[in-house]
Write a protein that binds this DNA or RNA. Sequence first.
DNA 1: TATTGTTATACTCTATAACTATA
DNA 2: TATAGTTATAGAGTATAACAATA
Lengths: 140, 140
Amino acid sequence: MTPDRDPVFVDVMDGLVQTSFTVIALLSRVAAEQDLSLTQLRTLAILRDREPKISELAAFLGLERSSVSGLVDRAVKRGLVRRHASGDDGRAVRVSLTPHGHRLAASLTDQVADLVAPMIGKLGTGDQRRLGALLVKLLA
Amino acid sequence: MTPDRDPVFVDVMDGLVQTSFTVIALLSRVAAEQDLSLTQLRTLAILRDREPKISELAAFLGLERSSVSGLVDRAVKRGLVRRHASGDDGRAVRVSLTPHGHRLAASLTDQVADLVAPMIGKLGTGDQRRLGALLVKLLA
DNA sequence: TATTGTTATACTCTATAACTATA
DNA sequence: TATAGTTATAGAGTATAACAATA
């Protein structure tokens, strides 16, 4: 039980978990200020450069199709997204941002940047470059 | 509108956001396998080395006291935590892990480590050291 | 038959407001 | 009066299961 772990590994794991909670809390705060859930914020970000089918959006978000159906309902009701037919497949529905949704998505990105800036600013430019490169490797 | 941002900054921000969603999804998966919410998993982790009052736990989690009251209710019902009087203040309630809760919390940590390992393993030991140090700076 | 999306239903999570018991 | 916690209530978010329309 409870295998011994490399202390370097444990440090990275703890750092990643703590950083993730911090970043997610920050994103949730930005979302909450606009009365959005974190999932709705993610959805707007995803839709900035895509017009996915409901099932594709569900895959992006890691949710069931039925959950996304309700999610889209609420976003439509707020004028952020719209549904339209998918040309090729008569069963499918594509989701896209309205102009209002586009503006909100851009504004959210700015707000996130403003909130993350003080955190990232604690690193010098060299460290920022190094961190960016390491995260790219991690996500590869 | 949409101010120009330093491309290095943007890279770090994107990397942090993407990494955070990845890590949180992973934690949620571990939690879901035990029929726990992410918040319940966090709570167990917090209680591993603390016996906070309800209001302190609420502050840790960033939730209202009433939300935490229900959270603790559900955890008590599952035999993971217990409530007890706080000695000094007759109004206060302290929350602590049961032995079962302690075992589960330890097991969850192991499962998280197992799931994060492949990700961190993509970095060599030198890179792991560097990333650990950068995350510490970021969280300072 | 299989797939896409929706609907019906149920439960968790969360917040706000009102309450109680202590301080 | 003020604080700690609980309860009542309401809404968002999610999943499962059953369904309609299309493939």
